[in-house]
Design a protein around this nucleic acid. Structure first.
Lengths: 205, 205
DNA sequence: GCACGATATATCGATCTGATATAATGAATC
DNA sequence: GATTCATTATATCAGATCGATATATCGTGC
């Protein structure tokens, strides 16, 4: 049921085809999901998305022995490609492509305002914001801002409660500052959204 | 294998006895672990800690009908307390106390410098920092600072890579700013650690 | 030739999440 | 004093995630 990883993977596949290993790197380098997502999440998620018809495997890219093919290596490559069961071969990357149903699902997931609670999923949406219409973007930003303002208030309250020692209080105060920083980020995004003199999105495909 | 929740629970029990429901609230309000930890984590974790001998259940606090006890309510309470199997009763809070072995385990977990990678576990340690010796505190802070500096460098690099659109870049830049904020927090803590004119910790216990 | 690090997929057990079930308590309303 | 309702409280389930490990190929350097 975790839509976050589904959204992230589909978002990457909107851009171009990818295989699992690459998806992990892109999650880190382009979508801001550091603390590397484990392979134990990636591969099951891809299998799930395929099962649901949102992505399809577009033939394992079996690396042929470059140009000078000795008969032996050629034969081995053929053997590997023909082998019946073991899931398109040991090795040989399995490249995935998003389907039409996958695109629909992506549009659904990215514009769903229900799951906007945590920083991680919000950042992910922003990293994919070029796929949203301007009005949806503003809507999500405003809702996130409201959430953060509420949270800031709560954290301020907590930081004031008396039975905290200095360290615990310091943690709460830092937490509040982090929320403030995110609020000012959202405000910047909203500002550049409203007077979109310098649009943040390049052409979305 | 997740030591983080174990550390958090043992940390709370160092202070005083708690039952599961209360632990969840304290995790949020005193240890800065918002985005409420689910009960599906808390109760199994307590069972695990009990199985390993780090905590013990100190009799379910069966709420007796306050002062004016009608015979009926008294009888019901007795019946509930005597019922044989179902794990100290439906309802009636199960209060846990930390054992000596639990204290040892806590000391071990909180001073382990290996698992200092993410913000969440670092914040948790800081919320419990009064249980650390000054030198261990400084050690953890310095190591965290080094981690963050490395990370800041990486994020700066990523924000500069060319094939990002404006939104993705904005995410990366905000991420870098968040790391900077945490670095300055760590620096503040280190400073007040070194000239501990106003010690952050009140009496530990 | 061959050692080694990077690329790549897959799977396992332990754990975590989000949802749901169950039930007692306390307070307000009638 | 009956009834509704939110809060307190424990427990469990399916599905998802993590961290570790296994396996194998590719590319580079020696």
């Amino acid at each position: 049921m975790n839509r976050v990883l589904d959204l992230a993977i589909l978002g990457l596949l909107m851009d171009r085809d990818h295989h699992g290993y690459e998806i992990r790197a892109q999650l880190r380098d382009r979508l801001g999901l550091w603390s590397n997502v484990s392979f134990g999440s990636i591969y099951p998620a891809l299998a799930r998305l395929e099962r649901e018809g949102f992505v399809e495997a577009v033939a394992a890219e079996v690396k042929l022995a470059s140009l000078s093919t000795g008969s032996l290596s050629g034969e081995r490559a053929t053997l590997r490609a023909l082998r019946p069961a073991p899931a398109l071969g040991r090795k040989g990357r399995k490249v995935y492509r998003i389907t039409d149903r996958g695109r629909e699902q992506f549009a659904l997931l990215i514009s769903d305002p229900a799951t906007l609670d945590d920083s991680k999923s919000f950042s992910l949406r922003m990293a994919l914001a070029r796929y949203l219409t301007p009005s949806l973007r503003v809507g999500l930003l405003e809702q996130r801002r409201a959430n953060l303002a509420q949270r800031l208030f709560e954290m301020r309250q907590q930081a004031k409660t008396d039975d905290l020692d200095g360290y615990a209080r310091s943690v709460m105060e830092h937490g509040a500052k982090a929320v403030e920083l995110e609020i000012s980020w959202v405000d910047d995004l909203l500002a550049s959204e409203r007077n979109n003199q310098q649009p943040l999105a390049r052409e979305a495909n």
